[in-house]
Nucleic acid binder design. Structure first.
Lengths: 343, 343
DNA sequence: GTGAAAGCGCTAACAC
DNA sequence: GTGTTAGCGCTTTCAC
């Protein structure tokens, strides 16, 4: 069905601006190229003509010539964990401020696997790639390297030190939780682990176990929640369904911790922290809300994003730069979901 | 600092594939163009050469010629309301499945205003634009129309019926809440409104008021929370700080409702729903969590996204198509945060 | 069905 | 400082 159509505009080209301003297309181009040398008068004429015509340079055409698209691809697996939207927002803002833009690729189950997604990304000639909590096979990593597109892993890392990454110090974060729970006098300390394919999950647990060991304790129970809501709940049921139950549980991220708390309080009739202490990891906004008031390990999202932007852009702008593995400090944020030492 | 650099690869062009396959560049192009006519044999040769060389067509170069970038711009204001990440994920998935990709533009305070953002978007020659909860001045709308890029408003609408939009039926949703609260026997019914520049906020409130009026009641108190966490809390304090207080409050979205509940329970020492009933709007995932168990009006995100994709792509693929204002039904999801009729 | 030629909108040498 | 020329990688008439 046709409507009474408003004129669909011709796109304005630099040639038209050039003609109107009485200069060459190169002159127009130079006016819109930050570092170029143009006389004040020419610039003035061109700007006037451009604004009269509503001209703006076509970024895509420019890309073809310069080989730089000023597009950064962001591959992200799950947005239901609020840690990622927060990061996405910060990332997009930071890149926008530096003249880049973010193209999002979901690597979820529903929309093809990471391999296909990766091909599509490269088709857009992205200047760089941020992989947010996406497992990269070494094969995939190699393919990216082969395509010449710099890749930074966000909140994941790999053994391969040719792969840039930005993570928090998950190990020491986990260790801190152990020390905190031991100091709080807990006797039966349990862990609900994240997805075992994720470096974050493994490191948080490793640090936690080391912390227990150093304090002369050992893990009382363990389940795997895979960073998934229903598996986290299932883990909680399994862990707390027996006659004896933990008096503290470290859950590998906040998202799972919320679901675990729900099961403990609603289904098990337990009080948090009186009957059981719960500690999470991430410090997403919801952790501070009254409904959960979750003691957790804070990841400094802003710092992570800032480092990610720095790392990816330095690789984009200087292809010879060495890969970096950035590790950022975490800190424990004590709230009401866990008994405190001396409390 | 230089590292021991892995060869940065030459980008493979269609010319190279053509040469290796012993055909022309046109032939290569046709093999990668869905509807084109190529002989089986040529196709075979080309595909082999392409895969040996690791060739994939450059989408940007293609765009220059076809005038279609297969990029959809998504402008989004706040990602802290979990309604939007959810929508973003669904939108990205749906578009990905149809061969389009999403470029995200944050229209937050930190990164310039909507005007600037809009220019940047158009520079990328996006095929279409989805504005998620972004207020569009009619001036802005006009500019987009002038640039020939179709725009769909997501979760917002305008009086101008030349502007496509996809929203829920916020009016009837608000009305339903009024009926529900009246049926529950509430006497002093209040409202915490959303940002008054948003159609959603106005329509929810208008429907709510109409529902009260139709039931012979009137609004007992009103504050404006602006869809903002701290202003919502301030509203709650103002509203419940007096000697007499509401026995029910309809909050214009879930995000604010969570913060309101926190204030009521932690600061005011009120029980929900025994002392006061709280109803939200959106039905984000958190509403179902035990910490809030919020009675709310569900927006069908999947349907909204599906309609958005349909609307924008139909406009992209047929520039003559008429604008559409899609209105989707909502339904009340009854949980534990409000006293129920006969309960 | 296939190749040759033209050109999308732009920038980067290169002369002047 | 400015214009001329060439060409980024691709698709698309147009002849054959």
């Amino acid at each position: 069905m046709k409507h009474d159509g408003y004129a669909v505009p011709a796109k304005v080209t630099s040639a038209e601006v050039a003609e109107r301003a009485g200069v060459s297309r190169s002159a127009v181009s130079r006016v819109f190229t930050p570092g170029a040398s143009v006389s004040k008068k020419t610039a003035e004429k061109v700007r006037r003509a451009a604004s009269e015509l509503g001209y703006r340079p076509n970024v895509l055409a420019r890309s073809l010539l310069t080989g730089r698209s000023r597009i950064i691809g962001l591959v992200v697996a799950y947005l239901n964990n609020h840690f990622y939207p927060t990061a996405l927002e910060a990332l997009s803002n930071a890149l926008q401020a530096r003249g880049y833009h973010v193209m999002v690729f979901m690597a979820s189950q529903t929309a093809g696997n990471v391999d296909d997604v990766l091909e599509e990304i490269l088709d857009y000639q992205v200047d760089g790639l941020v992989m947010a909590s996406v497992a990269m096979s070494s094969e995939l990593t190699a393919r990216c390297r082969a395509s010449g597109v710099p890749v930074v892993l966000f909140n994941r890392r790999q053994d391969d030190d040719r792969q840039s990454s930005v993570t928090s110090d998950n190990y020491s974060g986990g260790r801190t939780v152990a020390e905190f729970l031991l100091a709080g006098g807990h006797q039966r300390i349990a862990h609900i682990a994240g997805w075992q394919g994720a470096s974050t999950a493994l490191e948080r647990e490793a640090g936690f176990l080391e912390g227990l060991r150093a304090g002369g304790a050992e893990l009382w129970a363990r389940e795997v929640g895979d960073f998934d809501a229903s598996r986290a709940q299932a883990s909680a049921r399994a862990m707390f369904g027996g006659a004896e139950r933990p008096d503290a549980v470290f859950v590998s991220n906040d998202f799972m911790a919320f679901h675990v708390m729900d099961v403990l309080r609603s289904e098990m009739g337990l009080r948090v922290p009186e009957d059981v202490s719960v500690v999470g990891f991430d410090d997403v906004a919801t952790a501070a809300w009254g409904g959960y008031d979750l003691t957790t390990v804070r990841q400094d999202t802003d710092a992570m994003v800032a480092e990610t932007v720095r790392t990816i852009l330095s690789a984009v702008e200087d292809p010879g730069v060495a890969p970096e593995q950035v590790l950022l400090p975490t800190r424990l944020v004590v709230r009401g979901s866990a008994r405190v030492p001396g409390g």
